[in-house]
Computed example of a mutant assay.
Amino acid sequence: MTWTAPAPPLDRDAYLRDVVLKHRVQQVGAWCGIGFVVLLFGGWGLLGNFIPMVPPSGTPEEVARIYSHHADLRRVGLLLGMVGIFLTIPFYFAISMQMRRSEPRTPVLAMLQFASGILVTVVLMIPMLLFLGGSFRPERTPELTQLVNELSYLMLILPWPPIIGQLVALSVATFADRRPRPVFPRWSAYMNLWIAVLLTPASLIVFFESGPFAWNGLLGFWIPAAVFGSWYPVMTWLVLRAAREEAEEARLLAPPAGEPVGDAARVPVAAGALR
């Protein structure tokens, strides 16, 4: 039997450095949520001039005319929106890192949240690329520009099921948290469920070209977009708070100076058992 010597055990200073590093990584991930909202709505929405929305009832000529205005500025805004969408990955990972603390064994709900979040990232990235495709050659046939525009808005607003998967997983993990000091407060679970309910009217945009259920309407876009965008700063604050509490708990568990910590400290026992 081949036996490999273990790595040297961590001392107190190395343990505390690891605690600080882990805390800072989660802080960066949490702040990525704010970066996403700013770059998506500021880049795609305002700089890209997609808010106010290109109306679904517009004629092909009207849609093509909108795309032909400030085309370069529109492309810059869409590129910024793509950068913002990438920031969702570290943000969702930071949420899962905290969720796993409430699951004593296999972090199934944390993994579900992160997997659903990856789907959200993908379904947001694809319409950004389609919007860029529509802006790349605005002089093309108006009917083609209108088709690309419709596909872009539908793919951006309609795929709410993976978002629901995130919210439900996070809510269940919060309700099931039996720690004396829960990772996330129980009111956040109710908030997540209400946001899930308020996102579902976006499904109706496939049936309406005007009115409150169209993709530029109150129930078709503005309410879902408002609750979707507000979820990120709230969760940023909650993740920052939870990560700070985790770091405080880890510091309290730090070993006395000179005493090893971690699995490496238990290796001599296992090695003795092999003899």
Rank of each mutant, 00 (worst) to 15 (best):
T2G: 03
W3L: 14
A5H: 07
A5R: 10
L10D: 09
D11S: 09
V28G: 02
V28W: 14
G29Q: 03
W31P: 12
C32E: 03
L40H: 11
W44T: 15
L46M: 13
G48K: 01
G48L: 00
F50N: 15
I51V: 15
I51T: 12
I51S: 07
I51D: 05
S57D: 15
E61T: 13
E62R: 12
E62G: 07
A64T: 02
R75S: 10
R75G: 04
G77R: 00
L78F: 12
L78P: 06
G84F: 04
I89W: 13
I89R: 05
P90C: 03
M97C: 11
M97R: 13
M99G: 04
M99T: 11
P107Q: 03
L109N: 06
F114I: 08
A115R: 02
I118M: 15
I118Q: 11
T121Y: 10
V123D: 12
I126W: 08
M128K: 05
M128W: 04
F131D: 10
L132F: 14
G133F: 02
S135C: 10
F136T: 00
F136I: 00
E143A: 12
L144A: 11
T145E: 12
T145F: 04
E150Q: 11
L151W: 11
L151D: 06
Y153D: 03
M155I: 10
M155P: 03
L156M: 13
I157H: 01
P159A: 05
I163V: 15
I163D: 00
L167H: 06
L167N: 07
V168H: 04
A169V: 10
L170V: 00
F175Q: 07
R179C: 06
P180L: 06
F184D: 10
A189L: 08
M191N: 08
N192C: 13
W194S: 07
A202D: 08
L204F: 15
S210N: 14
G211C: 10
A214R: 08
W215Y: 13
G217F: 02
L218D: 08
G220C: 05
G220A: 06
F221N: 03
I223E: 05
I223G: 02
A226C: 07
F228L: 14
G229F: 08
G229C: 08
V234N: 09
V234S: 10
V234L: 15
M235V: 10
T236F: 11
W237H: 10
L238H: 13
V239Q: 06
A243P: 08
R244Y: 09
E245G: 06
E245C: 01
E245V: 12
A247F: 01
A247H: 02
E248P: 00
E248A: 14
E249M: 08
L252C: 01
L253N: 14
A254S: 14
G258R: 04
G258D: 06
E259V: 15
E259R: 14
A264Y: 12
A271E: 13
G272I: 01
